[in-house]
């Protein structure tokens, strides 16, 4: 039996160095809610765990005039308790709240949810719809990449070896803007999304949609940004016909598979419903946000 080491660096530089030295045999331990299960089932056998929860930059939330800087290792429960965040980005919080139980949210992190790269990750569609950016550090230094460009498929990301997502950056929410995330699961809680849909939209002074972003989860190998669905409501009052077009565009963009959690046919059938319902909630929130 090979020995698995554990390190808890206090700085990003030390973490990057540890990852680089392990040459691929290391895993980053954030909340551990996915990693520990993978370890237990023997799906992964790393030689080193790098626990990044001791790095202040990764475990803090900074809110200023430019927006929110959410440390990638902040627990989801801490995020749900951040009042300014919940007020400005309720859709992002919707997605976070759907993840696991209270217990799981007490450990799980945004960085983990993003980098585990499950197509059904509940926090990701709302972050994409919000236009969130991932702040990344690695052997080559720091870079910023839109959240939509991190995952490439189940368990696969564009991160290069040794890179760590340190934070998720959200802009300030504009006036007359609102976001929402909805998902479908057979149970009310404790399930993996069969379909998820996030909508962010902005209304002008007359109530016409001036900007929209629609992102879908669990209907492709990764969360999708669907500009066609957004285009269906931009320039409209987000009324019935526009919502029907949005739903149709969401359906058209989806490439779901059959698995134990849902059939392709069912996912195609309800992705539009979820997108439309999320849009209705986002619209309501945008109208209230004056």
């Amino acid at each position: 039996m090979s020995e698995m080491r554990y390190e808890a660096p206090k700085t990003l530089a030390a973490a990057v160095a540890l990852l680089a030295a392990a040459s691929g045999g290391a895993r980053i331990l954030a909340g551990g809610t996915d990693l520990l299960i993978q370890l237990r089932t023997g799906r992964i056998e790393p030689s080193l765990l790098v626990d990044i929860k001791g790095i202040p930059e990764m475990t803090s939330i900074v809110a200023d005039s430019s927006g929110f800087r959410l440390g990638a290792a902040v627990t989801l429960m801490q995020l749900t308790e951040h009042q300014a965040l919940a007020q400005e980005w309720p859709g992002v919080i919707d997605g976070i709240k759907f993840i696991g139980s209270i217990q799981v949210k007490g450990r799980a992190t945004l960085g983990g949810n993003l980098c585990n790269a499950s197509p059904a990750a509940d926090s990701v569609p709302a972050l994409i719809a919000a236009g969130a950016v991932a702040s990344i550090i690695g052997p080559a230094g720091r870079r910023e990449t839109p959240v939509a460009e991190i995952a490439t498929g189940p368990g696969r990301t564009t991160l290069t070896p040794g890179e760590i997502v340190t934070a998720l950056l959200l802009p300030r929410q504009a006036r007359h803007s609102g976001d929402a995330y909805l998902r479908f699961t057979p149970r009310t809680e404790m399930d993996i999304a069969v379909v998820g849909a996030a909508v962010h939209l902005t209304l002008d002074e007359r109530g016409i949609c001036s900007q929209a972003r629609v992102a879908l989860g669990a209907v492709a190998s990764r969360a999708l940004l669907v500009p066609e669905a957004a285009a269906a409501v931009i320039g409209t009052r987000v009324d019935g016909p526009a919502l029907a077009c949005l739903a149709e565009a969401a359906r058209a963009a989806s490439q779901p598979i059959d698995d134990k959690r849902g059939t392709r046919e069912f996912r195609l059938r309800i992705v539009g419903v979820m997108a439309q319902r999320a849009a209705e909630i986002a619209l309501d929130r945008a109208r209230r946000n004056s």
Partner: peptide, 25 residues
């Protein structure tokens, strides 16, 4: 696997599943 909650404990005042926390943590 964190799906049943029977192992719930408080860790620094947070409710967690102790099966999803390493002892070393």
């Amino acid at each position: 696997t964190g799906d049943c909650g029977a192992c719930s404990v408080m860790l620094d005042g947070r409710l967690v599943c102790s099966c999803l926390v390493l002892g070393v943590e």
